[in-house]
Design a protein around this nucleic acid. Structure first.
Lengths: 248, 248
DNA sequence: GCCCGATAAATCGAATGCAATATGGCCTAA
DNA sequence: TTAGGCCATATTGCATTCGATTTATCGGGC
């Protein structure tokens, strides 16, 4: 039944085929690899919401035995991506409206913090880069290019978080972002035209506060910005956008 | 080498007392137990900073085999309490000054967020309770009872975080708090008299903003408050307070 | 015909075993 | 005497195995 399943793998440690660049520079632990792959697999939505996570199947997919897989699942559970039911295995955690709202608020708090810290540390060059992105985004807005808009939008928020120069913050942020990304609202947030314009105006004030390095003010703006995103997202969820587990 | 290290704690599985409601309805998963025990063991400082964590030894201490222990270690690594060296086991993660500074900033951001959210949701009764604690703390301050002061201080901050009514925020906060608590500054933060008075004044403004439910303002105050704590803590660390791994 | 209980299969959680790697001590040589 | 290499031991990482619990299937009772 397991035709291949060669237990040997004779020194072919590279069979994992780390295509990732960050692993190239160092012998990035063999099994963080598994963790990353499994996390990506889930975040990308390859497993339906709330469904059982078949250990056996994933084992042969990843070419490993159950032990390291289960270790990875435990970690993902602690990250909030899956939940472990006693004696009933792991399920992909389904985010309720309430959960999503909480997540957005915490993201808002962290982005606000990032903005505050960024104002203390950001360089003129970094601000110039964000300005450039901002105008690029504005261009996409004018051309109603939603895809381009969202891409640059993500980039701007990312730049602000990076400018905080706080690795702890960045990893916490990445963790929460992963949980949200699983439900790929991103492409749907601002479907409503009026919300889009509002978001664009908010970004104007973000850039303005950043230029003036007004940390406290920027913190407020970013939190409010995420609050509005939250409202749009939760309304979107309530409208049943995620009812269908299959990709649209 | 671990002179005391009582491995017993006989069947006292309930000692963890997960205050969380979602776990109450069921017989709290068999091995979250292990995770909690191991985490407490490390947070309480029973293992020297940066020292190897011999799996074997912990196994017999916890009366389990290596498999669940290793799962727990992986989770603790993802929480940032330990670090896993490939083929060289787990070490208790040693926090640098820089790490500590980052942690305090993120804690400050989260507490600020908690304050902001609390202002939206807190009840008069909860505010009254915090007021009561505040005056109790003030009493300890006047009597120079540092122990009592810190206890109530912790309680106040905890109450604010709880009043945010955001479980995601609370768990993130608890995670970071755990990392810091490992270095038990808590009893040493405000050794300096002038800082103590300053902190007390800050708490006055916290309570004031909370009464007025001025979320944005409270957010600023709490962040600044933690920033000051941070400064005191990092200076304390720089003074070599943690050089000795043994409890003071 | 439908529901319920019992048995069989499958799955989960933990323990053990085995190969690979690191650690420490010892010996040899300069 | 000291530095460097080699071997024995211990420890890690993963696979496999074993017991326990759950889930599915089947037969009997109402």
């Amino acid at each position: 039944m397991f035709p291949v399943m060669k237990p040997m793998i004779p020194s072919d440690a590279t069979s994992k085929a780390l295509s990732n660049a960050d692993s190239a520079r160092e012998d990035l632990s063999l099994h963080d690899e598994i963790l990353t792959r499994l996390r990506d697999h889930i975040v990308e939505g390859n497993i339906p919401d709330g469904s059982r996570v078949p250990e056996r199947q994933l084992c042969e997919m990843l070419k490993i035995s159950r032990t390291p897989l289960r270790e990875a699942l435990k970690v993902l559970a602690s990250e909030g991506l899956v939940e472990l039911l006693p004696n009933r295995g792991a399920r992909v955690k389904q985010l309720s409206e309430h959960d999503l709202g909480e997540l957005f608020d915490v993201m808002g708090g962290l982005e606000g913090l990032a903005g505050r810290l960024a104002c203390e540390r950001i360089t003129d060059a970094e601000i110039a880069e964000i300005e450039r992105l901002h105008y690029e985004m504005y261009g996409f807005y004018l051309h109603r290019d939603m895809h381009g808009y969202f891409h640059v939008n993500q980039l701007i928020h990312q730049k602000i978080v990076e400018a905080s120069r706080n690795a702890t913050l960045q990893s916490s942020y990445a963790n929460l972002a992963g949980r949200i990304r699983r439900i790929r609202y991103s492409a749907n947030f601002a479907r409503k035209r009026e919300r889009w314009g509002e978001a664009m105006r908010e970004h104007e004030t973000i850039l303005d506060a950043l230029r003036r390095r007004a940390g406290s003010e920027l913190s407020d703006i970013l939190f409010a910005h995420l609050r509005n995103k939250r409202t749009a997202a939760v309304e979107h969820l309530a409208a049943g956008a995620v009812a269908a587990p299959e990709p649209v």
